[in-house]
Design a protein around this nucleic acid. Structure first.
Lengths: 193, 193
DNA sequence: TGATATAATAACTTATCACTCAATGAGTTT
DNA sequence: AAACTCATTGAGTGATAAGTTATTATATCA
């Protein structure tokens, strides 16, 4: 019964995916496929045995990325509804994927439509958790009278701004790790009534 | 005395610059030079008579962009130091250049280093005006106890977030025009003590 | 063990760009 | 008006990258 071959094929596929994540995270999505092949220690043609186009490779990457982010958020949101805790969790999840996430927001324009939609879906999940955590404190009048979506966009805008300008704020370092507490303190101070 | 030729040359140069701004704003910086030539109704080779490389064309564009933004901010900041007015002015200036500005923040990664620095310099000018307008109200204790640069980054983060996701918030429309008052109201509500 | 299926390879093809350069023709000078 | 200057042209060049395919090597099966 044919086993070794399937294993071998799955193995190269994994190698290509891992290489793509690494190379894309480090050098951006415009790196040529040959670079991915080198990193994966696989021939150039092999990539197209596993993925008909570079776009399909990217979408595969995005799908598993989205799944893993969602899982992490899901399990984390089962704890209390405290805002500061939620912001902390959110940033922790992002730190876990910082390189790739940063590339996604930096190069979103050049992503295929399908990839963009997947990314929007991720944000929308985050927004739901965010709303759940804020709900009680909003109705208790502890939060400034600002529309919920504006609060969310302010938070995401701030975090993305730091990610986008990481080289400026924390050269050769994780911006999120460095500024995590500053970002959370700033945002919670601002939204409180 | 040779006049017609110099005029002619200056004219083509202007045409190339205007075409580049238009085409870049509408289609992004990765648009091929032939498209710019077509838009300018000039031969492809002509571009390289006036600019040795595409990069030099981009830098020329950025320099005049920076100059014009600075001029507008300068003249506007001579009015009162009210924050809301300043935010209004800031957004008005951005609306004036929305297409190009949006491209700059969307495709910043692919810009040459020199262009990025020019863009950073623009933000730094804005930050100075921002600080001047806030100074009085901060010292009067009217503003939340949050470091100044965090306030500024929150504002810019919010505005950029809306620009970056313009297609989502205001398809085929100016996001800034549509959300100007919402953004200003949100931000001023948040920062007030 | 020999026939067959298939994962992997690497050289090849095709397309797209930025940039070059010899030719052209209108403008300028004497 | 003849000589020459110079902005403009567009076909050509070379580099880069995605995707193809004939070939090779190895596993599976009868």
């Amino acid at each position: 019964m044919a086993e070794k071959r399937k294993l071998q094929k799955a193995e190269t596929r994994k190698r290509i995916i891992a290489a793509a994540i690494k190379v894309y995270s480090e050098q951006g999505f415009s790196v040529p496929t040959v670079t991915i092949a080198e990193e994966a220690k696989v021939s150039h043609g092999s990539i197209f045995v596993h993925f008909p186009t570079v776009e399909s490779l990217l979408i595969c990457l995005l799908d598993s990325f989205s799944q893993s982010i969602n899982n992490e958020l899901q399990s984390l949101s089962e704890s209390s509804g405290d805002i500061e805790k939620l912001l902390n969790m959110h940033i922790n999840v992002l730190i876990q994927h910082e390189g790739f996430y940063k590339r996604l927001i930096k190069e979103a324009v050049y992503l295929p439509e399908e990839a963009k939609n997947t990314f929007i879906a991720i944000q929308s999940i985050v927004s739901i958790h965010f709303l759940q955590a804020l709900e009680y404190e909003i109705s208790a009048g502890k939060i400034k009278a600002v529309p919920f979506h504006m609060l969310f966009n302010t938070w995401l805008g701030l975090v993305h701004y730091y990610l986008l300008n990481g080289e400026l704020f924390a050269p050769q370092d994780s911006v999120l790790t460095r500024y995590k507490s500053a970002l959370i303190e700033c945002f919670t101070a601002l939204i409180k009534q």
